[in-house]
Every structure is written in structure tokens, then in C-alpha cells.
């Protein structure tokens, strides 16, 4: 896949795809989309990057350490928001009743915990998709010594 045209085009397209993915994530509570679809778009753009350049470059962009940290962080943001609402005196994963400010409808920073959780889910899904793809495509290095 060492094609100049592919590389050139993907270099132009990639920022837009990633920007779009970020938009879908951040506007999850205002328009169709959300953490899952937006995260997948960001993840797919990273996979496109890796495919059009080469796999080593893609892997280097997001090493295993970073991706495992990101995955855990995304999931922990979700569970953590639930635990915070416990600390605030409401039931698990409560929003308004726990006292998160809802803000003005229509703003990006509105609707309390929804926007934070969507962001966490976005991070998690993006890194998950990348990890799934790379772990399927990667050559194993460990199978010589057994």
C-alpha cells in the first residue's frame, strides 16, 4: 500500500475526518451521533492513516501503553461519573438529581454529566477500535519461543 496518491489524499482528508469525528462526539447531545459513532469515526481515521502509510507508523502513533491507558481512562470516566453522583447523594449515574448543572439547552457545555460521559465514551471507543484492528493485523512476535 505504498502509493503516493493514497498517501497524499489521506494526508489531506485525515484532519477533516478527525475534526468531523470530534464534532460528532462533542455534539452528541445536540444532534444525531454521540460517543459511539464519533469514536468509531476517529478510530477509523487512525486506521486509515496506518493503512496508507505503513503499519509501523500507525502503531507508533498510538503505542500499546497509550492505548491501554486511554481505554481504561474512558471506561473509568464513565464509572467515575456514576460514583461521583453517589458521593453527591443521588443514586448511581444520576444527572440532574445529583446536582450536575444542566446549563442552557443548545450549548456544547450543557446537560450536565451527559457531555462528560459522551467524551469519555468517545475516547474509549476510538482507542478500542484501533486496538482491535491492530491486534488482528499485527504479526505475533512471541510465537517463536514455544
Amino acid at each position: 500500500m505504498e502509493d503516493t496518491i493514497v498517501r497524499y489524499v489521506s494526508r489531506i482528508i485525515l484532519p477533516f475526518v478527525q475534526l468531523y469525528g470530534l464534532y460528532v462526539v462533542l455534539h452528541g447531545h445536540l444532534s444525531p451521533g454521540g460517543g459511539f459513532s464519533g469514536g468509531t469515526i476517529i478510530g477509523a481515521s487512525m486506521i486509515l492513516y496506518a493503512l496508507s502509510f505503513n503499519l509501523a507508523a500507525g502503531s507508533k502513533k498510538l503505542s500499546h501503553d497509550v492505548s491501554s491507558i486511554l481505554e481504561s481512562t474512558g471506561a473509568l470516566i464513565f464509572a467515575g461519573m456514576g460514583l461521583i453522583s453517589l458521593l453527591l447523594g443521588a443514586n448511581f449515574l444520576a444527572n440532574r438529581i445529583a446536582g450536575f448543572p444542566l446549563g442552557t439547552p443548545g450549548n456544547i457545555f450543557s446537560s450536565g454529566s451527559i457531555v462528560i460521559i459522551t467524551f469519555g465514551v468517545g475516547i474509549k471507543v476510538a482507542s478500542t477500535m484501533i486496538t482491535l484492528f491492530f491486534s488482528l493485523i499485527e504479526e505475533e512476535h512471541s510465537h517463536e519461543h514455544h
Binding site: 460528532v24 444525531p32 451521533g33 454521540g34 459511539f36 459513532s37 468509531t40 484492528f133 488482528l136
Partner: peptide
């Protein structure tokens, strides 16, 4: 149901295909 449509286009047509091709 545009939410499902976006998700299906990104996951079903995008990521699942990539995973299948990888396999």
C-alpha cells in the same frame, strides 16, 4: 433513526469491514 444510521455506517460498514478484511 439517524443516530442508528450514523452508527451503522461507521461501525457496520466501516469497522466491521476493516476487521473482516484484516481477518
Amino acid at each position: 433513526a439517524p443516530d442508528v444510521a450514523i452508527t451503522e455506517a461507521a461501525i457496520g460498514a466501516g469497522v466491521t469491514t476493516l476487521l473482516l478484511v484484516a481477518a
